[in-house]
């Protein structure tokens, strides 16, 4: 944090360690998810039981082990959000790099497309895509990923335009390097840092939106454990078992906070 003052705010802030608690939380979720893959599904019991030795956190409305589903849902939710964030970075990065490097009318067209995409809320774009793809987890990941791509395009374009006029880039162009090769060897290494730092911050957004969409029933098959959908199910039995909805909301909120902290740490380390 910058101290109160005047000029210090323009100096780079001191380097901080990665937030350990946030990282630990994500590791626990991933480890829990791996656990549920390696070990067999606990036997189904009676619906809505309270915690017992058989079912540590009780059972859900269909008698499935709630704790197990909470663990299985975590890695599932993270996977959907990761897929969405990666798609945003890949799509937006390519889009922005192509615009920033080529310049001229290609840049103008691609840049106009960014303007339009950015002036529509990402969620509306996601819903349009979802309307086309139909429900399903893959569709949710694609919708959220494409919906968030334009922000990365803007970022990548700005970075690419800076690099375009650097000496090494001009030199490599003078040596007749073209297209893909230029992007791979000169642009990508320079753009990857800022893009992934912002990507970590964006990941929290993707997580919330993917979970919201699955909560609303866009997630497809109801049997797979996923936090958004589980919250939707827990809502139905809220009056009988409020603790289940509370548990899901809690892990969801803590995960979003953890991801945000790591994202902000990444941005600060990147010096912005």
């Amino acid at each position: 944090m910058n101290q109160a003052g005047t000029l210090s705010s323009s100096l780079p802030s001191e380097r901080r360690d990665i937030p350990r608690a946030a990282l630990l939380w994500l590791l626990v979720i991933i480890a829990g998810g791996i656990w549920t893959v390696l070990f067999p599904v606990p036997a189904q019991g009676l619906p809505l039981q309270s915690p017992s030795w058989q079912h540590w956190l009780g059972t859900d409305l269909l008698g499935r082990d709630f704790g197990w589903r909470l663990l299985a849902g975590g890695i599932h939710t993270l996977a959907v959000a990761t897929a969405a964030a990666c798609l945003s970075i890949l799509l937006g990065g390519t889009w922005g790099m192509a615009a920033g490097v080529s310049g001229g009318w290609i840049d103008r067209v691609l840049n106009r497309m960014m303007d339009v995409a950015l002036s529509v809320p990402a969620l509306i774009l996601a819903l349009v895509i979802l309307a086309a793809l139909g429900p399903g987890e893959m569709a949710v990941a694609i919708a959220v990923g494409v919906g968030g791509a334009a922000t990365f395009a803007r970022l990548a374009r700005a970075e690419a335009m800076q690099i375009r006029n650097r000496e090494y880039f001009l030199a490599s162009r003078a040596l007749a390097a073209r297209g893909i090769r230029m992007m791979r060897s000169h642009l990508l290494p320079n753009i990857a840092g800022p893009l992934s730092a912002y990507g970590a911050l964006h990941f929290g957004w993707a997580l919330v939106n993917a979970a919201s969409l699955t909560f609303l029933g866009f997630g497809g098959s109801p049997s797979a454990a996923e936090w958004g959908r589980m919250l939707g199910e827990a809502r139905l039995v809220f009056w009988q078992a409020p603790a289940q909805a509370a548990a899901i909301a809690l892990v969801l909120a803590v995960t979003v906070l953890a991801v945000q902290r790591i994202g902000r740490w990444g941005m600060e380390r990147d010096g912005r």
């Binding site: 919201s212 939707g232 809502r235 909805a245 909301a249 969801l252 909120a253 979003v256 906070l257």
Partner: peptide, 18 residues
């Protein structure tokens, strides 16, 4: 504020419904 911003709308909705 940080906690509130991370709270799922579905959950705050359930609490307030209750």
């Amino acid at each position: 504020l940080a906690i509130g911003a991370a709270t799922p709308v579905a959950w705050s909705g359930l609490i307030l419904l209750w």
